[in-house]
Amino acid sequence: MIKYLLQKEFLQIRRNTFMPKIIFIFPIMVMCVMPWVMNQEVKNIRVDVVDIDRTTQSQQLVHQIEASNYFIFNGQKATYHEAIKDIETSKADIILEIRDGQYLIAANAVNGTKGSIGSAYLSQIVTSRQLILYSQFSILSLYNKGQNYKVFMIPALMGILMMMLCGFLPALNIVGEKEKGTIEQINVTPVSKWSFILAKLIPYWIIGLLVLSLCLVLSWLVYGITCEGSLWLVYLLAILLALFFSSFGLIVSNYSDTMQQAMLVMWFFVVCMLLLSGLFTPTRSMPELAYMTTYVNPMHYFIDAIRTVFVRGGTFPAIAHQVLALSVISSVMAIWAVKSYKKNS
């Protein structure tokens, strides 16, 4: 029986003028554009130097700043005041004032990351000239040898894509049938809840896996980035995540009356899950209460695990904990999705 229901879902997806486009164009767009955007590498910080001392040492420092990858030397300013003007008009991001052998670094910290990293780099340059100790420091970076931020972000992007396609499309699906009235016809047939829900879910899992494969190919073609660990583990994680989001979408759909409602509710939860998942910011710097939520956040487990596999080349034991957590959360959601679908009221 489920075979026929599945066939119907696929036909409907194919007939829809919009869906196939979304399913293919959207991931391509995201994969080609987003890694460039989500680049939080702090670069091209514009520095104004207010050099009151005018010594050779300060001249050398300016040269060093000019030579650095991180900074763009914006110019010498006569007074600190003049430099502040530059910051206010967004012509400069950081001021370095050299006066009586003392250094003042003033950074525009509206964007906290940029401000703090910028001033950290700048002070590093300044101090390394002062302290010999620094020359004795060496840094060994494990994984991601190229210091490529994209390597870090691409697996996360895959998660976002899976979430968008496996979450939003099913959420709109059942509400759509409700609004059209076809669900009533299905409800008077002997279709079991499980097969109805499964038939709704399976297509999106397949779409999810297709999208994932597309992403993997694109990341290899466009960025030359490949998975360090086993691809099977990536797929395993993806299936679990797809299971979670598609079930979640259906639950939202079951409880919603209109598409707009379903969309907004989905959006709300998805944004919260994303922000608290550690995708953009480290979870460990969160306050206690917010950190607690990560225990039930499947996105957190997924991001953690897929980065371990994709970037660090982790094996199954390294992600066993996350896989277990994901499976439990996803199964609960799947059961809930079936239970919340009512054939008889």
Binding site: K3, Q7, R15, T182, Q185, V188, P190
Partner: peptide, 29 residues
């Protein structure tokens, strides 16, 4: 539900499926 057929006020076949596909779907169900 196994022993009845039902046709509602609101038109109840899938508009985005063809005639044959609708028959096939409900037959299969």
């Amino acid at each position: 539900k196994k022993h009845i057929g039902y046709m509602s006020q609101r038109f109840s076949l899938y508009e985005d499926l063809t005639v044959a596909e609708n028959i096939r779907l409900f037959g299969g169900i």
